[in-house]
């Protein structure tokens, strides 16, 4: 068994590496094949010499294959190049903003799980009732509301009208509340939907009937059996949600002027700082792939049927 576990792990890691390589290649291709970055940066009025100098500086005068190899080598060594806009190394810039983004992401995920799982469970246990419908409406709304609009509305209500909470910028815990709520909505909706689905499935299993026949209360059944079995799919979705979450985070950071990676990326795009934009893309992709790999491995440790 342990050898098959190891081989499973090796396969998953191999697949993750291939995925990562493809994602890195895509990031490179998107940056390099969609037009000459230097021309885009300097604009149509730039002098020939200026352009040539900058191209040489960035290594863009080399053949594309050589650029690609250099890029991969640098990335593997963790060298993400220098920002064209800040004249600092990209990794420095990113690590200075990363903590804020992580804070926001973790807070949002925790909120999403804390609310989404009970909501989905409730809907499954009271399937077909008013509770179920209310939960489903919340979930569907959560998937239909533009995140940034929700952010604006919350600012309008809680910061402008009621003056209860600050409207942005990082600071104390109170600054985190609105952005985290905003960002949590979409994953919350997904988690609630999935929890309801997998919980309903588990509750339909014969062993649940057996437990009921033994006189266990619904609450005990859900707590003892169902929640544990429904947890795995929820875990996967949560990991898959990171991608969605990263997308949402950019908008949310922008709405609340939150000094994280998202605003950094937006600044990069505004100034056509493609090396910085590329660096943020790489960090995002790596985070996503690594997280999903961890969940895959965890999944197998928890559920031996999948080996």
């Amino acid at each position: 068994m342990s050898s098959s576990l190891a081989s499973f792990g090796a396969r998953k890691i191999g697949a993750a590496l291939v995925t990562l390589l493809l994602a890195l290649t895509a990031a490179f291709a998107l940056g390099h094949l969609s037009g000459d970055p230097v021309y885009n940066i300097l604009g149509p009025l730039a002098q020939r010499e200026q352009i040539d100098a900058m191209r040489a500086d960035l290594g863009l005068d080399k053949p594309i294959a050589e650029q690609y190899v250099t890029y991969l080598g640098d990335t593997v060594r963790g060298e993400l190049g220098d920002s064209l806009q800040y004249f600092r190394s990209n990794s420095e810039l990113i690590s200075s903003r990363l903590p804020q983004s992580l804070q926001l992401l973790v807070a949002a995920i925790v909120l999403a799980i804390l609310i989404g799982v009970p909501l989905g469970t409730l809907a499954a246990v009271k399937e077909g009732t008013w509770w179920d419908r209310a939960a489903s409406t919340v979930a569907l709304l959560g998937q239909s509301v533009p995140v940034f609009w929700l952010g604006l509305m919350l600012i309008l209500i809680f910061a402008v009208q009621l003056r209860l909470l600050p409207s942005g910028q990082s600071g104390g815990l109170d600054h985190l509340i609105l952005p985290a709520i905003t960002l949590s909505l979409l994953p919350l909706a997904h988690i609630a939907r999935l929890t309801r689905a997998s919980m309903a499935e588990v509750l339909a299993e014969p062993y649940i009937d057996a437990a009921r026949a033994r006189g266990l209360s619904t609450r005990r059944i859900v707590g003892l059996h169902a929640l544990r079995n429904a947890a795995l799919p929820v875990l996967t979705v949560t990991a898959l949600q990171t991608g969605v979450l990263l997308s949402g985070a950019v908008a949310v950071e922008y709405v609340y002027s939150w000094p994280g990676l998202g605003t950094l990326a937006l600044e990069a795009v505004q100034f056509r700082d493609y090396t910085l934009a590329q660096a943020v893309v790489i960090v995002g992709a790596v985070a996503f792939v690594v997280l999903n790999l961890l969940v895959d491995l965890l999944y197998v440790v928890v559920d031996p049927r999948l080996r």
Partner: peptide, 12 residues
């Protein structure tokens, strides 16, 4: 006819 064992590893 050799099959891969369902849900099993590549070697199986």
């Amino acid at each position: 006819v050799v099959h891969q064992r369902r849900g099993g590893g590549r070697g199986e």
